[in-house]
Design a protein around this nucleic acid. Structure first.
Lengths: 343, 343
DNA sequence: AAAATTACTGCAAACGTTTGCGGTTTCGTT
DNA sequence: AACGAAACCGCAAACGTTTGCAGTAATTTT
């Protein structure tokens, strides 16, 4: 009852015919008589025969598996991406190997190699914060494994990418803060080696400049987690003049800021307005609800998978690098809901 | 540059030696001279040689891959579980295939077969809400693939399981509501075919009985998502006498309830106290913050993976079914923070 | 009745690895 | 000078599958 899975050989032995006949019968090959096919199929069913994907993969150099390299799974945006990838993969008969890097470069290189070992047909990757070298990714490409980036793109590698328009999103967020009267806006940013960190910062700067506000370098903090907010928020709120707006690089940072502002006895949005990035479920749960930039992880994952399938089917080199850029949407909520204060 | 991965044959051909020698050299076999080993290793490095896991798997009937069947990835608890599994797998050199069922029985059967096809070394599963037949899971066992359940256990299959003590958690939650003076407590429950749904309901009932409160069947609603809350909350709040406490089967349901109570002009916890289950990050972000039962997904995933590794190493039948039950912890927050009202 | 067709089926190689066994060298002993 | 033993190395089979080719039997054509 509980043994090794049945093979084509087992069927052949049981029926006293050759494995090639069994193989052809199972694939409904015209060479095989209806009678034999019937018998083979019946026996296959009875033994719960299932073709060995490793053998198939070895023979065809196709594993029907794709890899996903992702910084953190426990994260609304990233888990949404995986969900989109999963659904797209399921529809097309692919399996998904998920590898979490926990933002560590070393682990990223390890999992890239593991995916190569497994001869995955393609890899979707969002790079870790700490990754500055990318040999492990070009290694995949050099071995004929197509790559598609999502969200965290690596600028040094020429391939497809699926992202939201980080620059524009940041610009909209910052301009919205200006439009509700903020004049001293702090930006809590992600590291610059991440393209999203850089682009969102540039969007912030540009929005200020276009609205005749000075970009004060002291208003830009490297601060992209709630832990770092904990560390730095005290100093920031004590500054004179006190900032009147925050644009945080992601929602959880923004919410941490809101909580600390409230704890300090100040009011959001009256004293300080806050905007996040991502529009996760927390944005509607916190109080006040959070104005933020929508970023549809599911769609991003789904589209990235479509790109990858294209590359798998057409050959890795057949396509020039494409880019799918989702337009960001500003979702206005309570954390910026105040009357315009003209000066 | 961008071709098929190098094989042991390529190395053999390049060096004019046999594949067996190369294979042994790479494994540092004593039969092979230091000189040859040196040359082989150098060439392997130069060609970026990586052993083909499919070939290894075929030969050894071990894929070094485990499968995870999970209802929904975009879910704090489940993604935490995956994260724990991932980390434990990474430490032990396993890869993880993640399959999302979206709570659909049909999809669960499909992914189970796909995992069987890939000859995964074991499977971790949390069953879908709609699953009432489990042939697809016994199929795995019958093929020698060990199974371990986490959270959503299937009572009809004899194998290891890792869960929190749902009964006790529900008991604690309900008793806590009673202790802050609630006398008319509604339970929003999950379907009974889910063991967690059943156990949490029983815990609720028992807590009431033990405290000399009648269990009113009308106080138990099948309602385990925020959408269902939307549907049913109006009728519930209109009842006379109005409920003064809610014990929801999970946090997102609890928070949806809180939001609707507030919208109805009532106060939490003064008019109605609310307890959830899960202790996700939302519990500290919502307002009032949510009293809830802690459920450490990461630990559950990690431990489930340990169980599975045990079974993989010792053989599927060598172990009697074990159960790891995490003790639930009641985390008291604002949603039940009110003075005790003795009658 | 012989030849040609049709309808089936089997052999063997290949995918990339591992490994038991046997085969050559090369030495050191006597 | 001859022998045994190290020290190296290669052959071939096996894992489960597919597939070109060749083979055999039955049926049709001439």
């Amino acid at each position: 009852m509980s043994g090794a899975p049945a093979t084509i050989k087992d069927i052949a032995r049981l029926l006293g015919i050759s494995v090639s006949t069994v193989s052809r019968a199972l694939k409904d090959h015209p060479d095989i008589s209806a009678d034999t096919k019937e018998k083979v199929n019946e026996t296959a069913r009875r033994l719960n025969y299932r073709p060995n994907a490793l053998a198939l993969g070895l023979k065809s150099s196709k594993s029907n598996t794709i890899g996903v390299i992702i910084p953190e799974i426990v994260h609304f945006f990233f888990s949404s991406v995986i969900s989109g990838i999963e659904d797209a993969a399921y529809e097309t008969g692919y399996n998904v190997m998920v590898c979490q890097t926990n933002e560590m470069y070393e682990r990223e290189t390890m999992v890239a190699k593991a995916l190569l070992d497994h001869r995955v047909d393609g890899v979707l990757v969002s790079v870790a914060k700490t990754s500055t070298k990318f040999d492990h990714l070009t290694l995949l490409q050099d071995n004929g494994i197509p790559l598609v980036f999502f969200d965290r793109v690596c600028a040094f590698i020429e391939t497809d990418a699926v992202v939201v328009d980080d620059y524009k999103g940041a610009y909209m967020a910052s301009e919205h803060l200006i439009s509700v009267g903020c004049r001293n806006i702090v930006h809590l940013s992600a590291p610059e080696n991440l393209l999203i960190g850089k682009l969102r910062k540039v969007g912030y700067c540009r929005a200020l400049e276009d609205n005749n506000l000075q970009v004060d370098p002291y208003n830009i903090y490297l601060c992209d987690t709630s832990e770092k907010v904990e560390e730095k928020i005290g100093r920031i709120l004590d500054r004179h003049p006190r900032p009147d707006g925050f644009f945080a690089v992601n929602d959880s940072t923004a919410i941490a800021v809101i909580q600390h502002i409230k704890k300090a006895g100040l009011k959001v949005p009256e004293d300080i307005a806050v905007v996040g990035f991502g529009d996760g479920p927390v944005a509607t749960i916190c109080s006040p609800t959070l104005t933020t930039i929508e970023q549809n992880g599911y769609e991003i994952g789904y589209e990235a998978m479509r790109f990858l399938l294209d590359r798998i089917n057409k050959g890795i080199t057949a396509i020039v690098a494409r880019k799918k850029v989702f337009a960001p949407v500003l979702v206005k909520r309570e954390s910026t809901a105040r009357r315009f204060e003209n000066r």
